[in-house]
Amino acid sequence: MFDRAVICTDLSPSSESLIACAGALGAIGVREAVLTYVIDIGTPDAASIDGSADAAFARQVEAIERAGIRVHVDTTVGYPPYAIEQIAEQHDASIIVIGSHGRGLFVSAFSGSVSSDLVRISARPVLLAVLSALGSNDESSAMCGRLLSRVLFPTDLTSVSAMAANYLVRLAPHGLGTVDIVHVVDNTVGNGIEFRRCDAQERLAELEGDLLAAGAVAVNTEVIVGPPERETARRCAMDGHSMIIMAPRCDEDPGHPLGGVTHAVIQSTRTPVLLIPPGCLR
């Protein structure tokens, strides 16, 4: 399913845990990787890579290849989000993997670029991992090797979330373990809370059936009543999940360009998040 991945590196020591994670992505089907370094046009000395960077590149390539994944290397100059998406398009990648320093979607691990822009323009899923949560290389490899063991899927039951649900169903035959599906009925707007709660339960039950039929080991559904941003972030902040899958939205609010719920989740969780972009700006 995710046979070819673009792995984004800034060649710093902090990116080593992401490289260890990349080597374990065979768990979600990755067989080839494009190790990508973008020289940010907004930084000094943007036209060159020194000898230490070359050595780091070679070391990271070797680490991924030792895990049995074929590696290509691609380096370019530009604004990282657009350059990364262009590389992913050129290599027909099925997923992009990036690291975060844990301060949300707006500060990513590579070249000081803005990862929210990447998600907004990407034509493929983006796996976001908090570097500090990955731990040592061994811990990172173990964490990313069990991404499918217990997945949390927060859904607002819109057409955008339905697209993410389709990806989830497609993952089921590839070793998907337990799936926890959560929907929050917004009690801050409108009436008919009980009707909306019952409707959500029925729709989650349908998705549960689809997942079990496709090969998921177990599925749990939960409908919560409350403010979606707060309740979804609270649920996602709980320990015990190997990965969160969700569909960001494009909002006009510059403070929350991917939607308030996605923003709240990214700010609160240390679990790897697989974002299924809605194809915004295209």
Results as ranks from 00 to 15, higher is better:
residue 4 R to A: 09
residue 5 A to K: 11
residue 5 A to L: 05
residue 8 C to H: 10
residue 9 T to H: 12
residue 12 S to Y: 07
residue 15 S to M: 13
residue 17 S to V: 13
residue 18 L to K: 09
residue 20 A to P: 05
residue 26 G to V: 00
residue 27 A to I: 03
residue 30 V to Y: 08
residue 31 R to L: 08
residue 33 A to E: 04
residue 34 V to A: 12
residue 35 L to D: 08
residue 37 Y to A: 00
residue 37 Y to N: 15
residue 38 V to T: 06
residue 47 A to S: 15
residue 50 D to A: 12
residue 53 A to H: 13
residue 54 D to W: 14
residue 54 D to S: 11
residue 57 F to G: 06
residue 58 A to Y: 00
residue 60 Q to D: 15
residue 67 A to K: 12
residue 68 G to C: 02
residue 70 R to T: 13
residue 71 V to N: 06
residue 74 D to E: 14
residue 74 D to P: 10
residue 76 T to K: 05
residue 79 Y to E: 03
residue 83 A to C: 06
residue 83 A to M: 01
residue 88 A to Y: 03
residue 89 E to R: 11
residue 93 A to Q: 02
residue 96 I to Q: 09
residue 98 I to K: 09
residue 99 G to C: 07
residue 104 G to D: 08
residue 109 A to E: 14
residue 126 V to I: 11
residue 127 L to K: 04
residue 129 A to L: 07
residue 139 E to T: 09
residue 146 R to H: 15
residue 147 L to E: 03
residue 148 L to D: 00
residue 151 V to D: 03
residue 151 V to Y: 05
residue 154 P to E: 09
residue 155 T to P: 01
residue 155 T to G: 08
residue 158 T to V: 02
residue 162 A to H: 15
residue 164 A to E: 12
residue 165 A to W: 05
residue 170 R to Q: 15
residue 171 L to G: 07
residue 178 T to D: 02
residue 179 V to Q: 12
residue 181 I to T: 06
residue 185 V to R: 04
residue 187 N to I: 15
residue 188 T to M: 09
residue 189 V to S: 07
residue 190 G to C: 02
residue 192 G to N: 10
residue 194 E to A: 13
residue 194 E to M: 08
residue 195 F to C: 05
residue 197 R to P: 03
residue 200 A to P: 13
residue 205 A to T: 15
residue 207 L to Q: 12
residue 208 E to K: 15
residue 214 A to I: 10
residue 216 A to N: 13
residue 221 T to D: 04
residue 231 E to V: 05
residue 234 R to T: 15
residue 236 C to W: 05
residue 243 M to D: 10
residue 251 D to Q: 13
residue 254 P to L: 08
residue 261 V to Q: 02
residue 262 T to D: 07
residue 264 A to Y: 03
residue 265 V to K: 04
residue 271 T to Q: 13
residue 271 T to A: 07
residue 277 P to L: 04
residue 278 P to F: 00
residue 279 G to T: 05
